[in-house]
């Protein structure tokens, strides 16, 4: 099913591969989460969460509203501090060495917010300066072309639609070739063409060795796109592993036949 998609234009992002099959050389875990919990006041939003994502993997983060998906992603992005536990991004401890960890990171939040008064191109220029991307222009040009933003480069952020803002946010996150990409509901506001461009680019980046986490309520998209699955319920990990094995395991026990059935079966049982 995944092969049905046409190849996207060149993103300009290349990580050496072992062979033409696109198996990335980097197979060590790029994201290591160990015993992470997060409390807000008396309530525990994320509870003792542990998982790893290796280069080339696309992890689908799935759960009901309030399951702790966004909080988990914000902790991985270094925006929120975990109450307990540790996070390692590309070999760097996020608490002890946050700058090095964040240099390897690209984060796209659920509602993209851009700086009012700055144009699309100025956002890319700032992102390039932030991550020290030398001669960013060819890469930025390529990303603008891929994301169909060429004619919007001089448009002010406040004049863009939600989908366009999302694309600018994605372009900024892609610019420095991050080893780890975190997407929080990335398909919100995108048109069908935009969705296809984004999902194709995710596959390409994963094939080139990036570790990707995507949080989404669109289970069909997760099923099509992801290699691995992490299912959260009330902040706790209730299922984790290769997508096929999680779905297959449930199917074997007669509980489900697809991701949607797995989701309902597990969340109904409360994990």
């Amino acid at each position: 099913m995944r092969d049905n998609y046409p190849s996207p234009p060149d993103s300009g992002i290349r990580i050496p591969c072992d062979s033409d099959r696109g198996i990335p050389r980097i197979l060590v875990p790029q994201i290591v989460v160990e015993g992470v919990s997060k409390n807000y006041g008396a309530s525990r939003v994320v509870d003792n969460l542990s998982f790893e994502v290796a280069g080339g993997q696309i992890l689908g983060l799935v759960g009901q509203n309030g399951a702790g998906k966004t909080t988990t992603l914000q902790m991985l992005a270094g925006i929120t501090r975990p109450t307990t536990g540790s996070v390692r991004i590309a070999g760097h401890d996020l608490r002890k060495s946050p700058i090095n960890a964040k240099k390897s990171l690209g984060y796209i939040p659920d509602s993209p917010r851009l700086f009012t008064g700055l144009t699309v191109w100025e956002h890319l220029a700032f992102a390039a300066a932030t991550y020290g991307v030398e001669d960013f222009r060819p890469k930025a040009e390529s990303l603008l072309a891929q994301l169909e933003l060429n004619d919007k480069r001089n448009e002010l952020a406040q004049n863009l639609s939600l989908g366009m803002r999302q694309k600018v946010s994605i372009a900024c996150a892609y610019l420095h070739n991050p080893k780890v990409l975190l997407f929080d509901e990335p398909l919100t506001g995108l048109d069908p063409n935009g969705i296809r461009i984004l999902t194709d680019s995710m596959r390409r980046l994963a094939a080139e060795g990036a570790s990707i986490i995507i949080s989404s309520h669109l289970l069909k998209v997760v099923e099509d796109l992801c290699t691995d699955l992490l299912l959260l319920n009330n902040g706790k990990r209730v299922a984790f592993g290769r997508l096929e094995s999680v779905v297959g395991g449930c199917a074997a026990s007669g509980a489900a036949s697809g991701l949607e059935d797995v989701f309902f079966a597990i969340t109904r049982d409360g994990g």
Binding site: A77, I99, K102, P109, P112, R113, F115
Partner: peptide
């Protein structure tokens, strides 16, 4: 920190 500052600066490689 405004939401855009959270997105670009808090998640960015800044001390």
């Amino acid at each position: 920190y405004s939401p855009e500052e959270v997105q670009f600066l808090r998640a960015g490689p800044f001390s």
